[in-house]
């Protein structure tokens, strides 16, 4: 078996007639923190859903732990998903449960552990994210950063070997951002897991990632370690890393010629 826990092989995916991904190749080595970066709407989150088996590729394949995800039956998919933990954009905590019950949820669903052991495990996980004291709060009473941390504790509740993060930094204040940033790296190393971070926050992710993929126009536009990419002369990477308005990533969504468009609309 290869040393890559997740392999994406010539993957294409799209809705209706518009292809979002056109032959993507990526590998995620064990124990590493790998970031997938790209502009909004470049299909980064969709990649996570493809890895998690919530979507089926048009062509190509995703392999997790050597198994092709979209060829799994229900029980096979369940088995694969139990190796994964995912942090959703807004945390996606269960609003009808308390913080404690949210973290206990995967344990209750997938194990027959006695209540005392579940309690110990929940305390451990909550302690790791620094929210042991908030265990009796309702999920709706948490601030954005706290909700994200509880969701992180829930995502790692069953000690997954792959942890996926969907925009973990979006909408957080700088302090919460730094906290989450540290947690991602520390949890990854403590659990010996592989982390996949989908984000567009360059500075934060460059400080913790081992390897970075840039996705643009449905293909991997650039890849390398953060240091390589910072020095990269590729126009797209340069634009993205330094946040320039126009460049290879156009300001305009693909449209017919402006003048023709206006003339045509006048004729209708």
């Amino acid at each position: 078996m290869s040393d890559n826990i997740v392999e994406i092989d010539n993957l294409s995916f799209g809705y209706k007639n518009r292809l979002l991904h056109k032959g993507i190749n990526m590998v995620f080595p064990r124990g590493k923190v790998v970031a997938i970066m790209g502009g909004s709407g470049s299909g980064k989150t969709t990649l996570l859903r493809l890895i998690g088996g919530q979507l089926k590729p048009v062509s190509g394949q995703v392999k997790v732990a050597g198994k092709v995800v979209h060829e799994q039956d229900r029980s096979g998919l369940q088995a694969l998903r139990r190796k994964m933990g995912m942090l959703f954009q807004q945390g996606a905590l269960f609003t009808d449960l308390s913080v404690y019950e949210n973290v206990a949820f995967p344990m209750r669903e997938h194990t027959d552990l006695p209540e005392s052991m579940i309690r110990d495990l929940v305390m451990m996980k909550l302690n790791a994210v620094g929210l042991r004291g908030a265990r009796n709060l309702k999920a709706t009473e948490l601030s954005g950063g706290m909700a994200r941390r509880v969701a992180l504790a829930r995502a790692v509740a069953l000690d997954p070997s792959i942890i996926m993060y969907d925009e973990p930094f979006a909408g957080l204040d700088p302090i919460s951002m730094a906290v989450i940033c540290n947690l991602i790296r520390n949890l990854n190393d403590a659990l010996g897991a592989t982390s996949i971070i989908v984000t567009h926050d360059v500075q934060e992710v460059f400080s913790i990632a081992d390897y970075v993929y840039f996705v643009a126009n449905g293909v991997v536009a650039a890849e390398g370690s953060p240091e390589d990419l910072r020095k990269s002369e590729l126009p797209f990477v340069h634009q993205f890393v330094h946040g320039e308005v126009d460049g290879p990533v156009p300001f305009h969504y693909a449209a017919p010629d402006y003048r023709q468009d206006i003339l045509r609309s006048r004729n209708v």
Binding site: M84, M86, F88, A92, T95, F105, P106, E109
Partner: peptide, 16 residues
Amino acid sequence: LMKATEQLSAMEMMAV
């Protein structure tokens, strides 16, 4: 609302 806030998706990803 559970769907809009990705709670159902999260559940699915937890193999539930």
